[in-house]
Structures are given as C-alpha cells and as structure tokens.
Nucleic acid binder design. Structure first.
Length: 470
RNA sequence: GGCGCCGUAGCCAAGUGGUAAGGCAGAGGUCUGCAAAACCUCCAUCCCCGGUUCGAAUCCGGGCGGCGCCUCCA
C-alpha cells in the first residue's frame, strides 16, 4: 500500500521494517479537558489507518497512543480545580476512553501516560544521552536542546527561518534561550509544581520529550509510522526528531502521517483555545448517533480539511441508513438460488475497495465503491437475481468493508438499545395489523405516527411489518 | 512577511493527462390502503484568465477566494 509521507512530501510504498509488525506511535490528548470532535476526527482517521494495516494489509500492530498528563495547562487547571494533578488528569483519560468507545475506536496495544515512572526515566535517559553528545545547555535551571548542534534540523517542517515574520511571536517562552528555536527538554519547576528527579536534576518534562521517550521505550529507536494532527508538524514533531535522532543516532520515524483539521462552518479551526468546541457527548445530546458522526468523520479524505456542520451530519445519517436498509434487506432474501454473476460483481467491488485503501487510505473512494455495489445488489434483489445462495458472499464482503469503516458494527450496537422496548413495539405492530385488516386506517396511521414520534419507524412489506430506529 | 494546502452539481465528496465515482437533497415514474424502503429516469464540464498537449478538472504561469503553519494546539 502507498502512504503519503510528510517527510518526503510524497506517497511512498509502505512495508513495516520487520516485514510483519507495524510499530506505530500516534500523539494522544493532553488531558486537561475533554477531547472535542476535531480531536476525534484525527483519532478516527488513525483508527482507520490501523484497521487498514491490520485487516487489509494483514500486518500485526504494535500501536502506542499516549496521554500527555503533565504540562502548563494540566498543572494550571488541576490547581484551579484544587485537585491533585494525577486525579485531575484521570478524569479526562476516563472521558477519552468513553468517547473512543462510543466512536468504535479499536483498542490499541499501549496507552502510556507521561508521568509514569518508566516513562520519566526513559525521558531522562534521552536527555542524558543528548547531554553527553553536547546537544544541551542549562539556563535558569531548565535543560534546553541546542538547535545549532543539529545540521539537518527542520527537515520535516521545512520552515524557512530566514523568512519568518520578524518580532512578535517567535520567542514567547519566559525562560532564557540562546536561540529562539531552541526548546526545553526538562523544565525547572516552581514551588508547588509537580517535580521529578530521575537523574538529570529535579524538574518536569518538556512537551516534546515525552513522545520521543515513550515511543522509544515501547517501540524502539526507529518506528514505522508516527501520526499526529497537522498542527504538530512544527514544532512538536520536528523537535521529536531532533531529540531522538541526536540521542540514538538512528532515524526516528520512517513515515509521518498527518491528519488535517476539522473546521467549523464558520471556517475556523475547532480548538480548545479558540473555544468553538463540540465534544462527542454534545453531538449525542443533540440527538445524533455516534455511528453517523463516525461516518461523517470518515467521509472526507484524511489529508483534507473536514468542514463540520449539522447539515453534513444529517447527510451522513441518511447515507448510513441507506447502507443499513440494504443490509437488513439482504437478510430477508427468500428467493433460492445462486448466481455466479453476483459473486463476480462482489469480487470486483472487494478488489476496487482494497485498491482505494492502498492509495493512501482513500476512504471516500472506498465508500463510493461500496455504495455502487449496494445499488447493483438492491436492483438484483428487486428482480430476483440474488438468491439465498448468494447471500453469504455478499455479507462476507460487507463485513470486510466494515472491518475497515467500523460504522455498521457501531450502528448495530446502537440498534440493540432501541428507545422503545422491543416487546411494546411488537404489541403495537400487532394491534396495527389488526386495525389494517379491519380497514381501520385511521387507527393504523395513529399507531405508526405514535411510534414515529418515539423514534421508531414502521415499514410494511408483503412479508409483514418491520420496525427500525429512526 | 515566509512556507504549505485547498477551490468539482443546491449540499457533502472521489477522481490529478483520455473525455466527470458515490452519498444527501430535488423532479418524474414503478410498487403501496397511505407511507416507508427499493428500483428506473432526470439533474455539473470541474473559481477566473492565459499557456503546454491530438486531448486538461487533472500539467505550467498569472489572478481571485478560503484555510493552515511559522506561538499552546489533533
């Protein structure tokens, strides 16, 4: 398969270094707040990449997603809340797990948090190695990385520092730095701040060092894929490269996978600092389903900005309904027989779907292939050219599609918890059938409208009445 | 000011040199007690202007517009 690599700015064929296990690190949340749907656009994109690597390319995974549970904001917010740092960040880690579960993200192999001893120790080992090799200096009790000691610094972001806007915002750090681009590895702490001492003196981690350390400890010196949002390219990922490569002497990540932003209708990036933020639970409270949200998040290629709007979410819901209606219909096929042309058509769709995934995870292209197949098969069902003998081939294909998309499984889990008890629905359907037999259509329509208002839709067919969630 | 991305139908969105996938919405039809679902039909020449080419939405140049990064940020 081919993946776009930010490092080379082009698509490259991807094969894990050892040929069978993908070692992937994706930057996780800073847990001072609940993640918003922009964050989850990224997590969902990485989830699909992971699923493609596993279920399509057939690789084993060793995938690490961290929690940044110490930085200026987590410290500040926990102090404001009057809660110990660890306890404060625990809440948002728990919230993340809930949201991840709601959106059907596959569990990853490791979820380290920065303040675990093993990770702090790993950070200090890197810092010590950098110090030995002359890449650091001390200023005001903090340890800095010295950019000037790394000739190829900037190879990922490719920023032209000569052309940077003069003045203003380059050096906002309150500490003394020799060069504006130097960054802190280990921060001096002020009284009352959490402090650790694992061999480089008391202090707390700089932002970038944790990812380098956790990736190295759990995945080794060179990893296959490092993922993040595009906003992390600079400075975060650039600095991770600097630290790790100068400490180990090996290339850090072979592929850099960056996901574009989700932006709001009004055209602004959704971010905590701007304040235009919706969480997964906000979306659910508006009456939308998580499956629809997941579908929407997948409906734009990961390297393009996704403009979020409630109208788009409505459209996603409708598209998903079409898919679910088809799958339901498939289960009810009664005509016997097997048709080789159906198997051919399905095989073709599987091939095309896979080709889309191979081309830099083209999910919108892949869903196009899938819906094309839905129409063909719906038509085949209509005129009896799809028999019970064909059904397993078809369901097999759609199960595979969903192993990647993960949207049908979510929807089915939601269906298992209808807003009206199943027993009651069935009683009402029975009552309505009796009314219809007596040609009392007023009563029949009343029951249908009543259920509709409660979120249950009825559909009549020659073989009886079916219900589904709205 | 520097670097980069993007601009495809009413909406969302693939396609990046060979004559516009898919979804939503809309119109007409078939089916239905009525609906729903489903099917059939219809609905774009790709922001603008130049250029390269037998041929461009796709490549090049110039505009216009939107967004991102350069600062914490998925």
């Amino acid at each position: 398969m081919f993946l776009y690599n930010t490092l080379s700015r082009q698509e490259e064929e991807f094969v894990p270094l050892d040929g069978h296990t993908v070692r992937m690190y994706s930057c996780g949340l800073t847990v001072y707040n609940r993640g918003h749907i922009g964050n989850f656009r990224y997590f969902t994109a990485v989830d699909v990449l992971r699923r493609v690597l596993r279920h399509h390319a057939g690789y084993a995974m060793r995938h690490v997603v961290n929690f940044t549970d110490v930085d200026d904001r987590t410290i500040l917010e926990s102090q404001k809340a009057g809660v110990p740092l660890r306890e404060y960040t625990d809440r948002f880690i728990e919230a993340f797990r809930e949201d991840a579960d709601t959106l059907g993200l596959e569990a990853v192999e490791e979820n380290p948090r920065a303040t675990d001893d093993a990770n702090l120790r790993a950070m200090c080992e890197i810092i010590a190695a950098l110090d030995e090799r002359g890449h650091t200096y001390l200023s005001d009790g903090s340890i800095y990385f010295k950019i000037a000691t790394m000739p190829d610094y900037g190879k990922l972001a490719r920023l032209d520092h000569a052309g940077m806007k003069p003045g203003a915002r380059v050096d906002t750090d309150k500490y003394e730095k020799e060069d504006a681009r130097d960054f802190v590895l280990w921060k001096a702490t002020s009284p009352g701040e959490p402090t650790w001492d694992f061999g480089v003196g008391p202090g707390r981690p700089g932002w970038h060092i944790e990812c380098s350390a956790m990736a190295r400890r759990l995945l080794g010196d060179t990893i296959d894929i490092h993922a993040g949002g595009v906003d992390l390219i600079f400075p975060h990922h650039e600095n991770e490269i600097a630290q790790t490569e100068c400490a180990t002497g090996h290339p850090f990540a072979r592929f850099w996978f960056h996901v574009e932003h989700l932006i709001m209708d009004d055209g602004e990036k959704m971010s905590k600092s701007v304040g235009n933020v919706y969480t997964v639970s906000d979306v659910l409270e508006r009456g939308y389903r998580a499956s629809a949200l997941r579908y929407l998040l997948l409906s734009v290629h990961y390297r393009k900005q996704l403009k979020f709007s409630w109208a788009n979410l409505d459209q996603a819901e409708e598209a998903l309904k079409r898919l679910m209606d088809f799958l339901g219909r498939l289960e009810r096929v009664a005509v016997e027989g097997t048709h080789p042309e159906i198997a051919d058509r399905v095989a073709g769709a599987r091939r095309d779907f896979g080709a889309m995934l191979d081309a830099d995870v083209n999910v919108p292209g892949a869903t196009g292939v899938m819906f094309d197949l839905v129409r063909t098969l719906n038509a085949a069902i209509d005129d009896g050219r799809l028999g019970t003998g064909d059904v397993p081939v078809v369901t097999g294909a759609f199960e595979w599609f969903d192993a990647i998309l993960g949207v049908v499984a979510l929807r089915r889990a939601e269906e298992a918890r209808p807003p009206v008890p199943v027993e009651e629905i069935e009683q009402l359907i029975e009552a309505r059938q009796a009314a219809r037999r007596g040609r009392n259509f007023v009563e029949a329509d009343r029951i249908r409208a009543d259920l509709d208002a409660r979120g249950i839709v009825l559909e009549d067919s020659p073989t009886g009445t079916r219900w589904k969630r709205k």
